[in-house]
Simulated scan of single mutants.
Amino acid sequence: MNKNKNTAEVILDTAQSIVQEHGFNGFSYAHIAKQVGIRTASIHYYFPNKEDLGEALIERYHRNFISFIAQIDAETGNNLEKLRKFILLYSDPVKHYCTCMGVMLSTDLASLSGKTQEGIAQLFSSNLEWLKRVLDQGRSEGHLNFTGSTDVLAHQFLASLQGAQLLARSFRDQNRFHMIAEGLISALI
């Protein structure tokens, strides 16, 4: 176990990795315990049941997303560059033929707690709100060229990236993700 991280964070890191590869219903606490090198009772100490773990996973993932987009906003004022950096967030899981937490948790939505389901919806809402803002600003400032509703385009952009992750994973071909991502950007310039 990494001595620089507390046990709860190591458990969450491990669970996130497993979820992004196998889904929320594709593992048990025994899988986490084996990878981390602890007993399942230790996991239950931090997360009494799997619902608690799911809620903690989506809350942390959402917080990290908010931090990531804040960093993008701080690093550049160019909205086209912001979208390129946003795509990098979605391309990271593709390197391991996984998908983002939101996509994987959504596939198990019916079996998740109400709080986890709400967390997923909030995560997607945050994605869409940020995308709409960037698209609006980009069009106003002349960085982006498109017609129609920014709300519709934000939904299409997010859905395309999520679908691109699934295609890359299914075909075990990262180029499929990159082809779709490049198409999204090309359509805006």
Rank of each mutant, 00 (worst) to 15 (best):
V10A: 10
V10Y: 02
V10R: 02
I11R: 03
I11Y: 04
L12P: 04
L12A: 04
L12M: 11
D13S: 08
A15W: 02
A15L: 11
A15S: 12
Q16T: 05
Q16N: 10
Q16V: 01
Q16K: 06
S17C: 04
S17W: 02
V19M: 05
V19Y: 01
V19T: 12
V19H: 03
H22V: 14
H22F: 12
H22Y: 11
G23M: 08
F24S: 10
F24L: 13
F24C: 09
N25Y: 01
N25W: 01
N25M: 15
G26L: 13
F27K: 03
S28Y: 01
Y29E: 15
Y29H: 12
Y29Q: 13
A30L: 07
I32C: 03
A33T: 12
A33H: 06
K34P: 00
K34W: 10
K34Q: 15
K34I: 11
K34E: 15
K34G: 06
V36P: 02
V36Y: 03
G37C: 10
R39Y: 08
R39Q: 14
R39G: 14
R39H: 12
T40E: 14
A41M: 10
S42Y: 01
S42E: 01
S42K: 04
I43W: 02
I43H: 05
Y45Q: 03
Y45S: 05
Y45D: 06
Y45T: 06
Y45K: 11
Y46K: 12
Y46Q: 14
F47V: 12
P48F: 08
P48W: 03
P48G: 08
P48M: 13
N49Y: 09
K50I: 10
D52I: 02
L53Q: 02
L53Y: 01
G54D: 09
A56D: 07
L57Y: 02
I58M: 08
I58E: 05
E59D: 15
E59V: 01
R60L: 13
R60I: 10
H62T: 15
R63W: 00
R63P: 01
R63D: 10
N64W: 03
N64G: 02
F65M: 15
I66A: 08
I66H: 04
F68Y: 13
F68T: 08
F68K: 07
A70Q: 10
A70M: 06
I72F: 08
I72E: 13
I72Q: 10
D73L: 05
D73G: 01
A74N: 07
A74Q: 09
A74H: 09
A74C: 00
A74V: 10
E75H: 07
E75G: 05
E75L: 15
E75S: 15
E75C: 09
E75Y: 07
G77V: 07
G77T: 09
G77W: 04
N79F: 05
N79A: 01
N79L: 05
L80D: 09
L80K: 13
E81H: 14
E81S: 09
K82I: 11
K82Q: 14
K82L: 13
L83W: 01
R84M: 11
K85E: 14
K85N: 13
K85D: 11
K85R: 15
F86M: 08
I87W: 03
I87Y: 04
L88H: 07
L89S: 06
L89F: 09
L89Y: 13
Y90T: 14
Y90V: 10
S91Q: 14
S91R: 15
S91K: 14
D92E: 14
D92V: 13
D92C: 02
P93N: 06
P93W: 06
V94Q: 04
V94G: 05
K95P: 00
H96C: 03
